[in-house]
Design a protein around this nucleic acid. Structure first.
Length: 615
DNA sequence: AAAAAAT
């Protein structure tokens, strides 16, 4: 272990690795005369209603995206090496298929921008990209599955029949080997099973739910469907909900890479940005809609999106969404609109933790689901060196300055190792940013009072190394996969240990090491116990004073949410295992076997007796 | 107490 924090910053590899997002511009320019192109009379659909693989992809970057030329997609239709039948799904209903009248199959195929090429230039990092992914660290991550008939995990992408087009994109992403969550979740999803997964971003879960969705859409042969009666309403096949705008943007960027040249259309919708452009994108056809809840509700109310064709529903960072008070919106979207019920659609629920509220959501949204828990990437593998320092409120700025100066002296700044500084308040973020700037440290900030434009600009500026210090509120705490963050500084500690875990998870990404420094003082007493426990759990050196703090505050009722759910290295455990769950007389999982025996309409309406057993 | 998210 490195002797000093500055040494470890220096040693921390700065490659972004697996999740590195090249910043794809969301606005693919489409010349006005090609926008909202009416269905061309001569654009007859292909003769066979089969798979939409975009023909041969190898060494074929330009072919097949040469614009909307009529009849330019002969490569469609013939390849059917994936579909094992099952092209139609229940409830497709009449003319909503591939051969529908309005020629929906080639909608939105105008000039697909290459999502692999239009990123922010990152010359400093390009060379080491993906070279230092510590896959051994991934191997150590504990994984736990439970449920009925769990499909076995895979060890390579080659074992999974995702199809040529998707495989090509996996190669383009330089993914060599599936991460633990991918090894388990992909076979589960491909088998059509619902999934409740406890995993954090950084574990590779975006790909874990995107691959099966894209593959499934390709297999079904349905894409970008329209309803002739309602030309302005979009009918996505998959919906991905996430808590923050930036996370939605990021998922969209990744999903676009995965679906490049497959014909599968991914659209993102979120607030704070003009809705008109999003409406135009939707009108051009959408297979996978990535959205924040508020904007989606708006779109549903405007009748610009219908969920009746949804076959895949993925909820990312579900616990976060509930924390943010999105439950009413989410329930409205999932249960009160025209979304197909559980069992008809396939639902994938991702959450870092598995508290009661999420358990309820799982029971309501999922059908006969498989529970998957993946250990914390950072804590269980000790990839993140955590340091807690006792710093009085009044000393924080000068202490931060010391850290940054030492970092700079080590040449770290020159190498553009990015530093993410978390603060408690939006005001605090603004003033700290300003203070850093006037003291010679190029910094920017991201928080909810900044306009969406400013937020996205700040993120770009940070990622590119232009301002290698980003001051952030919790808007950036979860899910954001910012590559090359070498150092996370908790200038203000959060009140919740889960937030702490999320924050430090911004470093040590993709199996690389990182450093997390936190400023602790008396105002953080309530966090002492859980913080000390977490650090011990992840084999970090716990300062003696923190241990004393923890002992002092623990009987004072410091909220230790950890361990409550069976905790340990996992964010949660399958509550269905708890004997108390079966107390209500219905032995749903019994039978004496090791596996669950989920009979009796668990996915549909569970009895009230079961509901009461949760409380 | 603060943050996030639809206008």
């Amino acid at each position: 272990m490195p002797a000093t924090w500055s040494e470890s910053v220096e040693k921390a590899p700065t490659g972004g690795g697996v999740g590195a997002t090249s910043h794809a511009s969301r606005s693919t320019y489409v010349p006005p005369h090609l926008r909202n192109r009416p269905p061309s009379a001569s654009a007859d659909p292909p003769p066979s209603a089969t798979v939409s693989y975009a023909g041969t992809l190898a060494g074929n970057e330009s072919q097949g995206q040469g614009g909307p030329a009529v009849g330019g997609f002969q490569s469609y239709g013939s390849r059917n090496d994936l579909s094992g039948g099952g092209l139609s799904r229940g409830g497709g209903g009449g003319g909503s298929g591939w051969n529908n009248r309005n020629g929906g199959w080639d909608r939105g195929r105008e000039r697909e921008a290459n999502p692999f090429q239009n990123g922010v230039p990152e010359p400093e990092f390009a060379a080491q990209e993906n070279l230092g992914i510590n896959f051994d660290a991934y191997e150590d991550i504990p994984v736990e599955t439970s449920g009925k008939d769990v499909p076995p995990p895979v060890n390579t992408f080659a074992e999974i029949d995702l199809g040529d087009a998707l495989n090509m994109n996996i190669k383009r992403c330089k993914y060599v080997k599936p991460t633990p969550v991918q090894r388990h979740a992909i076979p589960i999803s491909l088998a059509g099973r619902d999934l409740m997964a406890c995993a954090q971003t950084g574990s590779g879960k975006t790909a874990a739910f995107c691959f099966p969705i894209i593959s499934g859409i390709l297999k079904s042969g349905q894409s970008a469907q329209r309803q002739p009666r309602m030309p302005r309403m979009a009918f996505p096949l998959a919906l991905i909900l996430s808590p923050t705008r930036e996370l939605s943007i990021q998922i969209h960027e990744e999903a676009r890479k995965f679906s490049y040249q497959t014909g599968v259309k991914v659209v993102v919708a979120y607030g704070g940005a003009p809705i008109n452009q999003q409406l135009r994108e939707l009108e051009r056809g959408v297979d996978i809609l990535v959205a924040t809840p508020g904007r989606l509700v708006d779109l549903l109310e405007r009748a610009r999106v219908s969920l009746q064709n949804i076959r895949y529903l993925a909820l990312d960072e579900a616990d976060r969404m509930l924390d943010m008070g999105f439950e009413p919106q989410i329930r409205r979207i999932v249960q009160q609109m025209d979304m197909p019920p559980p069992g008809v659609r396939q639902t994938l629920l991702f959450s870092a933790t598995f508290p009661k509220e999420i358990q309820r959501l799982a029971a309501d949204f999922l059908s006969n689901y498989i529970f998957l828990a993946v250990g914390r990437v950072g804590s269980s593998t000790e990839l993140i060196l955590q340091r807690i320092e006792y710093v009085l409120e009044t000393d924080k700025r000068s202490h931060l300055m010391d850290l940054l100066h030492a970092q700079r002296a080590n040449g770290v700044q020159a190498k553009q190792a990015l530093t993410l500084v978390f603060v408690e308040t939006k005001k605090g973020a603004d003033s700290l940013e300003h203070w850093l700037c006037i003291n010679g440290f190029p910094a920017t900030s991201i928080h909810g009072d900044r306009t969406q434009q400013e937020r996205e600009y700040a993120l770009r500026s940070f990622k590119s190394g232009k301002t290698p210090i980003l001051v952030a509120t919790d808007v950036a705490a979860r899910g954001l996969d910012i590559p090359h963050v070498a150092h996370v500084i908790n200038f203000d500690l959060p009140n919740d240990i889960d937030d702490y875990v999320h924050r430090i998870g911004r470093t040590g990404r993709a199996g690389k090491t990182g450093l997390a420094t936190a400023f602790f003082n008396d105002s953080n007493a309530s966090l002492a116990k859980s913080l000390a426990d977490l650090m011990q759990e992840s084999n970090q050196e716990v300062p003696a004073w923190l241990t004393r703090f923890a002992a002092r505050s623990s009987f004072g009722g410091g909220r230790n949410r950890r361990g409550q759910g069976g905790g340990g290295r996992f964010g949660g455990r399958d509550f269905r295992k708890d004997s108390s769950y079966n107390r209500g007389g219905m032995d749903m999982y019994g039978g004496g076997n090791s596996g669950y025996n989920q009979s009796g309409g668990y996915g549909g309406g569970y009895g009230s007796a079961v509901t009461s057993a949760w409380d």
